[in-house]
Amino acid sequence: MKATPGRIRIIGGSLRNSRLEVPELPGLRPTPERVRETLFNWLAPVIAGAHALDLCAGTGALGIEALSRGASRVRFVERDPGAAQALRANLARLKVAGGEVVLADALAHLAMPPSPFGLVFLDPPFAAGLWTPLARGLETGGWLAPATWIYVESPRDLEPALPPNWRLHREGRAGEVRHALYRRTSELPLS
């Protein structure tokens, strides 16, 4: 299924109402405005100064929204050259500082030497089924700070298998999407 080219809107912060150009690419599925608004309401107390990783960035809407709301740094990892180029162009056009675009496969990127992040957006292409391997790579590869917040977007009826020390903080459903915010802890749950 092809997404139609167009524009999506940043909904809050310094870039409020700015538009991101969205290229026509197979499987590109920007996070809906309503879901982003809910997510960033949940993150409001912790977003200022955050170092974030937007894994499988696509349009980069989540990471750019984070920068707009006060995150100090966002690394965008995207494997599609067209999506990565569109993301670079949007960052340049909006004069957004603190964004770094890495053209790489997400799993391959997680095999690189890590730098820990305090906020991660995990929204892989739904058809790829990458939630569990990406979550494992984040958890075991040194990519997460001790109390990282992890946003996971998946199909409405799918709750991916995630590391047991990722504690569900909030979740919701909108249309065909389940959106959930987890908090990494150092403790494993009691069985």
Rank of each mutant, 00 (worst) to 15 (best):
P81L: 05
A135I: 10
A83G: 00
E100N: 04
G118M: 03
E171M: 05
D123E: 08
H109C: 14
G175I: 08
G27P: 03
H179M: 13
E100T: 15
C56T: 09
S68G: 04
V35E: 09
E78L: 10
A3T: 11
L110N: 06
L168T: 13
F117V: 07
L20N: 01
L168A: 09
C56Y: 15
L25N: 04
A83R: 06
E187L: 14
A83K: 06
P155M: 08
Y182M: 09
V77K: 01
L25G: 06
E24N: 00
V46R: 14
G98P: 01
V46I: 10
V102G: 01
S18E: 12
G141I: 15
S14H: 00
L158V: 15
L134C: 01
R75Q: 07
L144D: 02
E65K: 14
R9V: 14
P23S: 08
E24P: 02
R170I: 05
L134P: 00
E33V: 05
L94K: 06
T31Y: 07
F40I: 14
A83H: 03
A145D: 10
V74K: 02
T148G: 00
S18V: 06
A48M: 12
A71T: 01
P133T: 11
I8Y: 03
E37N: 08
P114W: 12
E176A: 15
C56W: 09
